[in-house]
Amino acid sequence: MSILKITDVVSGYGKAIVLDGLSLEVEEGKCHAVLGPNGSGKSTLLKTITGTLKPYKGEIYFKDSKITGMNTFKISRMGISLSPEGRRLFPDLTVKQNLEIATMFTQDKEKESKLEFVFNIFPRLKDRINQKAGTMSGGEQQMVAIARAIMIDPEILLLDEPSMGLAHIIKEQIFEGINKIKETGKTILIVEQDATMVMPISDSISILEHGRIKWSGNVSELENNDSLRNSYLGL
């Protein structure tokens, strides 16, 4: 059953159309990856889902509710959480404060168990709990961004290029964490450029080019399709 359904969405910035009739479905409990080069519309897709950009055309459904054009904070409270491009942490707040701020709209008693959960995913954060987020390394900041998105306890977690600008060893730690999240049954929609990182943790994949989905299918199909991998992923 699909938890997120995007139908024929046209979206962009002013007169610049970035998503041009994009349609996509994400199955509940699965990890779906959207791969594509720079400028293909990956971040625009996530901004449109989370309400930061209002689509010019098309519809977005979360479960059975239409969320097209809704405010970002309402979409977040409905259970769609984004770890955004550039991490966007609260730089003067500590790791703990960054994480706790995401639990403002949940019961206080759940805070501790959620903290334990994210420390289990990214153990390094437990050691940095009182460090100001703005003083951390890029990889650690990415961990905080994903952990903050998880603290909301979303029904679907959206990840915007979690590997961007990170060293290979740090990317591995980040994706190990994402895999742990996936193993809990959480639905994940991840947009990435690095296919080698994202393919092992994904159930299904879409390839985005010029604002349209060029191909969708499961990972094994993509692995067995040399021409597709060569054309779009350079693998």
């Binding site: 989370t50 930061t52 405010n71 970002t72 904070f73 977040s76 409270r77 959480s81 984004l82 955004p84 966007r88 942490l89 609260f90 730089p91 003067d92 707040l93 701020i101 995401a102 403002m104 709209f105 903050r148 998105a149 909301i152």
Partner: peptide, 15 residues
């Protein structure tokens, strides 16, 4: 506090 530091991030956590 969250809004003062990053309006967009604050909205993402439901503010």
């Amino acid at each position: 506090l969250a809004t003062s530091q990053d309006k967009y991030a604050a909205e993402l956590v439901g503010v």
